[in-house]
Design a binder for these strands. Sequence first.
RNA 1: UUUACAGGCGGCCUUAUCGCGCUUUAUCAAAUAAAGUGAGGAAAGUCCGGACACCGAAGUGCAGUAUAGCGGGUAACGCCCGUCGCCCAUGUGUUUAAUAUGGGAAGGACAAGUGCAACAGAAAGAAUGUACGGGUAAUGCCGUAGUGAAAUCAGGUAAACUCUAUACGGUGCAACGCCAUGUAAAUCAGUGUUUGAGGGUUGCACGCCCAAAUUGAAGGGUAGGCGGAUAGAACUUAGCGGUAACGCUAAGUCUAGAUAAAUGAUAAGGAAGCUCCAUUUAUGGAGUUACAGAAUCCGGCUUAUAGCCUGUAUUAAAC
RNA 2: CGGGAUGUGGCGCAGUCUGGUAGCGCACACGGCUGGGGGCCGUGUGGUCGCAGGUUCAAAUCCUGUCAUCCCGA
Length: 125
Amino acid sequence: MPFQFSKQEKLKSRSIIGDLFDKGLSLKQSPLKLIYAKIDPPLEPKIQFAVAVPKKSFKGAVERNRIKRLIREAYRLNKGEFFNNIEGSYALLFLYLGKEMPTFDTIEKPLISILENLINRTNEK
RNA sequence: UUUACAGGCGGCCUUAUCGCGCUUUAUCAAAUAAAGUGAGGAAAGUCCGGACACCGAAGUGCAGUAUAGCGGGUAACGCCCGUCGCCCAUGUGUUUAAUAUGGGAAGGACAAGUGCAACAGAAAGAAUGUACGGGUAAUGCCGUAGUGAAAUCAGGUAAACUCUAUACGGUGCAACGCCAUGUAAAUCAGUGUUUGAGGGUUGCACGCCCAAAUUGAAGGGUAGGCGGAUAGAACUUAGCGGUAACGCUAAGUCUAGAUAAAUGAUAAGGAAGCUCCAUUUAUGGAGUUACAGAAUCCGGCUUAUAGCCUGUAUUAAAC
RNA sequence: CGGGAUGUGGCGCAGUCUGGUAGCGCACACGGCUGGGGGCCGUGUGGUCGCAGGUUCAAAUCCUGUCAUCCCGA
């Protein structure tokens, strides 16, 4: 079941999200930015995921929803490749920093490269 | 065929591979499977009106806010319908008047009081001028001229204060109820109290309530979870009443309920409209297809909007 | 979801309550003082008063609608 993305995998806790902004580590690959942190004690689905698009860049709710859906889709299709055998529990938060409407391709490529970097970092430790 | 106005529809269809929310069924549960279902006319702005919920009195007075011909519709409204007067445009008529059609608008009161009117002008409210003409015994008086938006009339102005009539308790689903977690000030109930600072209660006043101590009881916050929460002033069709808004009756239908927030992604093909180009005048090629995403729920208003359909009026061309 | 404020020359502000002339500082242009710069002095340019409609003889000002920006509460 590598391509599913259910409700449980969404990062929902307000306090964890607040901590991410305070002391999370970040990886950037334009137009995306990933903020992540290792969570201890581990969460139930070990990897939890969230998306955010700033209201300042995109005023309309339709555009913001569209970008969030694209990012979520790209994450859903690629997460199995990276996280199936990972150690530890992580919270991930993707931010979209671009100013123009993306297509699926312009989302997927930087997302893959960010995930590769993330895996490399966690293995080094 | 052009333009304007009014009303309606409004990101289409198929296949493949993945995927999401909710409901029901199957399994002890979890996970899973199957079936069903899943954004709008504005879901938006939050400008009005309600439903619904709560408040230690939500009381009295003042203040404040809103509305404004008349009649009707409605749960209610500042919304909608009809109508009278007013204003504008066009046609007929034409010295004026009148009349037809269409459109517009917050349309009570200035003989209750207070205020305001730049510049110009003699004068803008306790003011009656100047010139010419008329008239008279003479003055008062009458007309014309000039300034100005308004000039002799106790005028104009209330989208000036104000007055009159009517309506309004306050706060809002982040209301409110419940569950789990559990340290202290704090809360609730009973007993009790003289003075009174102080505090609370709707902007103010009155009024009302609280307040030491002691006994007893159950809990509150803590970005957590559940309920509130989706069947309703609902929708569709038919008949009847009404100029209309709308109402009544009957039959049928079930029509989103998320919560860092579901309704999507990729690929291929197709249909229709519009624009541009080419020409064998009917085809080919290219481009484009809006505004925009439910968040307690309804009724309005306002704003955004490609294209299509219907109706009315109008313009031009051809026959 | 609820509440509040602000839009005026290039920039920062006053004027709005109480309607008739849009003003101040900085900046800009020209001239003067100086050998030159800075500084000071003088003169000048520059504003659909966010937008639309209405009331009025007359609107930055009053009324209605609308757009944008900012702030606050939970």
